[in-house]
Amino acid sequence: MEVHNVSLKISAVKKEQYPTEGYPEIALVGRSNVGKSSLVNTLINRRSYARTSSQPGKTQTLNFYEVENQLYFVDVPGYGYARVSKKERQKWGKMIEEYLTQREKIHGVVVLIDGRHTPMQLDLQMINFLHYYELPLLIVATKVDKVPRSKWNKIEKEIRQKIEFKKQDHLVLFSAVAKTGVNEIWKWIEKRADF
């Protein structure tokens, strides 16, 4: 999809604040600093629209990005960031769980994992959680530009061995730097959003 119009509609912390237009929503989840904001920026073809940070735990709200007046990307706070108080983590966890389990407008979830490493326990827990709620998943292995291309098949194989893939799950290797995987990710999003 060619993106010309995009706006940060709202940064929400509770369901009363969610947008009401009824557009399909694609949620983006992953560990802190895995590259969610970079993926959003790459998909909407903007350099730094979604704020990226080298400091994990920067996104603390559900950020609803309205794309072309027909779709929302929802940037979900990263999980697994240790430097946040337990109370704060519980608050985020409740907010994220409420959104992912009760929001009817979610048409799919993009789960970002770091392509340089095998999926961590927290990644597997999130994927199992999303499988339990039968949400369609796209697993995106990020930062693959930092791995020699000759090892990409190995990355894919390791991810598939570690994650219990369901029939409807998909996997894409992605690089924000080289724009690897962008077309495949958009194809999946467009199919999920019924464009």
Score class of each variant (00 low, 15 high):
residue 146 K to E: 14
residue 168 Q to K: 13
residue 123 D to Q: 12
residue 36 K to R: 01
residue 148 P to A: 08
residue 182 V to F: 02
residue 53 S to E: 13
residue 131 H to L: 14
residue 80 G to H: 06
residue 63 N to K: 06
residue 158 E to F: 08
residue 135 L to E: 14
residue 182 V to L: 00
residue 141 A to Y: 06
residue 106 I to P: 08
residue 6 V to E: 13
residue 133 Y to T: 06
residue 178 A to D: 15
residue 12 A to M: 04
residue 157 K to N: 12
residue 113 I to G: 02
residue 130 L to C: 09
residue 163 I to N: 05
residue 64 F to L: 03
residue 140 V to P: 02
residue 71 L to R: 02
residue 193 A to Y: 02
residue 117 H to S: 13
residue 92 W to F: 13
residue 185 I to V: 11
residue 57 G to K: 09
residue 47 R to T: 11
residue 105 K to C: 05
residue 53 S to P: 08
residue 12 A to H: 03
residue 40 V to H: 01
residue 185 I to R: 02
residue 158 E to H: 14
residue 31 R to P: 06
residue 116 R to V: 07
residue 104 E to K: 15
residue 41 N to F: 03
residue 160 R to K: 15
residue 10 I to M: 09
residue 29 V to Q: 01
residue 179 K to D: 05
residue 123 D to F: 12
residue 42 T to S: 10
residue 142 T to A: 03
residue 91 K to L: 15
residue 27 A to E: 08
residue 16 E to T: 14
residue 171 L to H: 09
residue 131 H to I: 14
residue 193 A to M: 07
residue 2 E to P: 03
residue 89 R to Y: 02
residue 84 V to M: 15
residue 192 R to K: 07
residue 195 F to C: 15
residue 192 R to I: 04
residue 50 A to H: 06
residue 72 Y to C: 08
residue 1 M to G: 01
residue 189 I to L: 00
residue 26 I to D: 02
residue 181 G to D: 06
residue 102 Q to D: 08
residue 23 Y to L: 02
residue 27 A to R: 01
residue 70 Q to S: 11
residue 22 G to N: 07
residue 19 P to V: 03
residue 174 F to S: 04
residue 110 V to Q: 05
residue 105 K to G: 07
residue 160 R to A: 14
residue 77 P to Y: 05
residue 117 H to D: 15
residue 80 G to I: 08
residue 135 L to Q: 13
residue 169 D to E: 11
residue 5 N to D: 13
residue 159 I to N: 09
residue 14 K to V: 06
residue 141 A to H: 01
residue 149 R to Q: 15
residue 27 A to T: 00
